[in-house]
Computed example of a mutant assay.
Amino acid sequence: MRNRFKIIAVGLQLALIVTATPAAAWGDRAHAAINRAALASLPADGPVFLQAHADFIGGMASLPDLWRQPVDPFAKMEEDPNHGWFREQFAFMKKPPRSRYEFVIALLDAQRKMPPGSDAALRTNVRWTGTMAYATVEAFDRLVAGMRMHRRLAAQGQDTRHIDQALAYDVVRIAHYVGDGAQPLHASIHSDGWRGANPKQYTTDRSIHSRFETMFVDAIGLTEQDVLRGVPAPARQQGDVFDAVLAFLDDSAANMERVYQLDQQGALADPASRPARDLVYARTATGAAMLRDLLHRAWLVSALPPQNPAADPLSPANPAYNPETGSAPAPVK
């Protein structure tokens, strides 16, 4: 009996730990709907073979949030920043560098110029700036590499089942970051209640995050079809992938204050609220379209002969090599 009580107590402690962590973006329902809508809207010349894995990609949509629990500290330290992009916190950068590691060093350089212990210094690090843009483009490159292997095996008449399973997992990962990025509160320092000067008296309650992305979404019963209705027709992305991701996150951040306005009006507590529903539909459709277009783009890029940079990014001979990071930033492509 004593051991039984110990087991119950440990379970309660774990439950408290889990509920104390930041809310998972969009919750299971919206992440799954975004993923399924993206797959369903793939054009005929896209990686349509992934549609056979829709149940896995939709069902495992929230998997990356499992890597963010305090009980798994190494995983949490690495993964947690990948779910946010708080641009206000590093506004001193005209443009983020094309390297996760150069970004970290730039933050450290800036932090060292701030008063020790100040709020600015405490928040000038990846924990408080996020690394979502890097997580997304890194996941994109992994998709391209896997799709090249799929093409090679298919051309040789070999079984692609295993690489397709690996690609389905990679889609889950990039899809989660894109889904998070479409949620405006994941693209601002005001992710969990308003911070700093607050002349409009917006809520400082951290629960606004989950009230918007999970409770309201669950209350309206968001479906894949709701998302699909707002997804535009496929359009081939132009320009650099990293720049496209940054523009996507900037667009999301531009919708952040609207969430607070709706909350202030009581709309997030009313499933019948048309303005609140419209924001959810618009943002999830934007996320699904971005994911669809990235999957399509990765598939098209995988058909091209690999074009190595002028020099290996890890080679000291690369003109852009940075000895502090041991690499050169990614070239524009």
Rank of each mutant, 00 (worst) to 15 (best):
V104F: 07
V104Y: 12
I105L: 11
L107C: 05
L108S: 11
D109F: 07
A110G: 03
Q111A: 13
R112P: 03
K113Q: 15
M114S: 07
M114L: 15
P116A: 04
S118W: 01
A120R: 13
L122W: 02
R123Q: 11
N125A: 04
N125H: 02
R127N: 06
R127F: 08
T129P: 05
G130E: 11
G130T: 08
T131S: 12
T131E: 08
A133M: 12
A135C: 06
V137K: 04
E138S: 05
A139T: 04
D141W: 05
D141A: 08
D141E: 14
R142C: 01
L143T: 04
V144P: 05
A145M: 01
M147L: 10
H150M: 04
R151I: 06
R152K: 15
R152S: 15
L153I: 14
A154M: 12
A155C: 02
D159S: 10
T160A: 12
R161P: 00
H162G: 13
I163S: 15
Q165A: 15
A166Q: 15
A166P: 06
A168I: 12
Y169S: 14
Y169M: 14
D170C: 00
V171K: 01
V172N: 11
V172Y: 05
V172D: 09
I174V: 12
I174G: 04
A175D: 00
H176C: 03
Y177I: 02
V178Q: 07
V178S: 09
G179A: 04
D180M: 01
A182D: 13
Q183M: 02
A187T: 15
S188A: 03
S188K: 00
I189G: 07
I189M: 06
S191R: 05
S191K: 03
S191G: 15
W194N: 00
W194D: 00
R195Q: 04
A197I: 00
P199F: 02
K200T: 04
Q201R: 14
Q201N: 14
Y202S: 00
T203R: 03
D205M: 05
I208K: 01
I208W: 00
I208F: 00
H209K: 06
S210D: 09
T214M: 01
T214N: 01
M215D: 11
A219T: 07
I220W: 03
L222F: 04
T223C: 08
D226C: 07
D226I: 09
D226M: 08
V227N: 02
L228P: 03
R229S: 11
V231T: 09
V231I: 10
A233T: 05
A235Y: 04
R236G: 08
Q238L: 14
D240S: 12
D240L: 05
V241K: 12
V241E: 13
A244S: 15
L249Q: 09
L249R: 08
L249Y: 14
